[in-house]
Simulated scan of single mutants.
Amino acid sequence: MNGLHLIADIYSCQSEPGLLIERERLEALCVAQCNEAGLTPLGAYFYQFLDEQGEAAGVTGTVVLAESHLAIHTWPETGDATLDVYVCNFSRDNSGRARQVFQRVIGALAPQEVVRHEVIRGRLPVNEAVAS
């Protein structure tokens, strides 16, 4: 289960109008970027939130990958989003593919600020383990 988990809090997006608010466009972007990076989408579920007037509001979605997943959530009222890309590195190292998807989705959102975290998941080899 060793892998790489990329996490971003994305602020003040300047993307094309509608990208944070239109479920179909956001889903198409995420699935396409996973495919282009060489990952294997198995399915996607994106949900369109509606405001009190019944108009499109934020979107939450996941792309389930053979290698693990992508998850994204948007807050168009503030121009913000969160993005997680997690890949397992069981049969091959998918770290570069994950970084490509992560960068391209963030790039499409055109944020003014991004807070990023990179988490290596799984057990370290014995010679790299840190004694507590």
Results as ranks from 00 to 15, higher is better:
23 R>M: 14
34 C>L: 08
13 C>Y: 00
116 R>P: 02
54 G>I: 13
47 Y>L: 13
19 L>V: 03
40 T>G: 10
7 I>M: 12
117 H>L: 08
70 L>T: 14
105 V>K: 00
120 I>W: 10
52 E>N: 11
85 V>M: 12
88 C>P: 00
20 L>V: 05
117 H>Q: 15
105 V>M: 12
24 E>Y: 03
129 A>I: 09
66 A>H: 11
45 Y>F: 05
8 A>H: 12
8 A>R: 15
75 W>K: 00
80 D>Q: 13
64 V>P: 00
103 Q>I: 05
52 E>T: 11
125 P>R: 05
93 D>G: 05
91 S>N: 11
2 N>A: 08
112 Q>P: 01
47 Y>E: 13
40 T>S: 15
41 P>M: 12
116 R>D: 10
119 V>Q: 13
89 N>V: 02
89 N>I: 03
38 G>Q: 07
64 V>A: 07
75 W>S: 01
80 D>T: 08
82 T>E: 04
52 E>H: 10
31 V>F: 00
9 D>S: 15
67 E>S: 01
10 I>P: 09
118 E>Y: 03
120 I>Q: 15
29 L>N: 10
79 G>S: 01
32 A>L: 11
67 E>W: 05
132 S>P: 14
23 R>N: 15
69 H>N: 01
61 G>M: 09
9 D>W: 08
36 E>L: 12
14 Q>K: 15
79 G>M: 03
74 T>E: 04
127 N>G: 01
95 S>L: 07
43 G>M: 13
38 G>L: 12
114 V>R: 09
105 V>N: 01
100 Q>D: 09
130 V>Y: 11
52 E>K: 11
98 A>E: 10
14 Q>P: 02
57 A>M: 08
29 L>D: 11
59 V>W: 01
109 L>I: 00
54 G>T: 09
55 E>C: 00
100 Q>K: 14
131 A>T: 08
129 A>L: 15
77 E>C: 00
21 I>N: 08
124 L>H: 01
44 A>Y: 02
65 L>H: 07
83 L>Y: 05
130 V>R: 15
52 E>L: 12
83 L>P: 01
50 L>T: 05
29 L>F: 05
85 V>I: 14
92 R>C: 08
20 L>F: 07
54 G>E: 03
8 A>I: 08
28 A>H: 07
91 S>Y: 12
22 E>M: 05
99 R>I: 05
44 A>E: 15
27 E>K: 15
80 D>E: 13
